Simulated scan of single mutants.
Amino acid sequence: MSSTSDIEALIELMAKLPGLGPRSARRAVLHLIRKRSLLLTPLAQVMQDVAATARECLNCGNVGTSDICDICESEKRANGELCVVEDVADLWAMERSGVFKGRYHVLGGTLSALDAIGPQELRIPRLLDRIAMENVTEVILALNATIDGQTTAHYIADQLDGQVTLSSLAQGVPIGGELDYLDDGTITAAMQARKSL
């Protein structure tokens, strides 16, 4: 295999990443090659290390480098609050905000009759086990405001009825959002969830 075909293979692989198409991948690869010692070599090493060590937390489904992630291991996080999210990316978004100090549970998707995804295909049975074992007092359903997300939230709420306090994230106008740019569903949710001043 020639070096040119190696570079083309790298471009093709990079183009498969979210947010990168063929042109962006080509620019990124060219930049990496130009900054080989500063970027490409360290990136290749880190990617190799992550490929060898990354694993899913056996408890919550987060991604880390050990069988139980740092969040699940932290005694400070054992406050009885459990935030249920669809995907690891959602967990990371919540962590970036710094607003939640409890533990998480990653479902690995949402219920979907069309795609034949039921509770057993998700981490819902594990969620029910955790609630029974970990002295959970509140479950926060932080699922996306899609039909599948809401169907999943209702299913979980039915399974947990009377066992714990259930809540969900508020929906509506985002901070800094302008009404003119919002869709009808967001405006409707914001109007229905309005609060007194």
Rank of each mutant, 00 (worst) to 15 (best):
T4V: 12
I7S: 06
E8H: 03
A9W: 01
I11R: 13
I11N: 05
E12P: 00
L13C: 11
L13V: 08
L13G: 15
A15I: 11
L17E: 04
G19R: 08
G19A: 07
L20Q: 05
P22M: 11
A28N: 06
V29Q: 09
V29N: 09
V29K: 10
L30A: 11
L30W: 04
H31G: 05
L32E: 05
I33S: 03
R34T: 08
K35A: 11
L39E: 15
L40S: 03
L43G: 05
Q45A: 14
V46P: 00
M47V: 14
Q48I: 01
Q48N: 10
D49C: 07
V50T: 07
A51N: 12
A52G: 08
A54R: 11
A54C: 10
R55M: 15
C57S: 08
L58W: 00
N59L: 12
C60W: 01
G61K: 08
G61Q: 11
G61L: 09
N62T: 03
G64M: 09
G64W: 12
G64F: 06
T65W: 05
S66Y: 06
S66D: 14
S66C: 03
I68W: 03
I71D: 11
E75F: 02
E75Q: 05
K76Q: 15
K76R: 14
K76C: 02
K76F: 02
R77W: 05
R77C: 09
N79E: 07
G80D: 11
E81V: 11
E81M: 13
V84M: 08
V84I: 14
V85M: 05
V85E: 04
E86K: 03
D90R: 00
L91D: 04
L91E: 12
L91A: 08
S97H: 04
G98P: 04
K101L: 12
G102I: 10
R103A: 11
R103F: 01
R103W: 01
R103Y: 01
Y104C: 06
H105P: 07
V106G: 05
V106P: 01
V106R: 01
V106S: 06
L107H: 10
L107V: 09
G108Y: 11
G109V: 05
G109A: 03
T110I: 00
T110L: 00
L111G: 01
A113V: 14
A113G: 02
A113Q: 13
L114K: 07
L114F: 11
L114Y: 08
L114G: 03
G118C: 07
P119L: 04
P119E: 04
Q120D: 14
E121A: 09
L122H: 08
L122Y: 07
R123K: 14
R123A: 05
I124L: 07
I124C: 06
L127S: 10
L128S: 09
D129S: 15
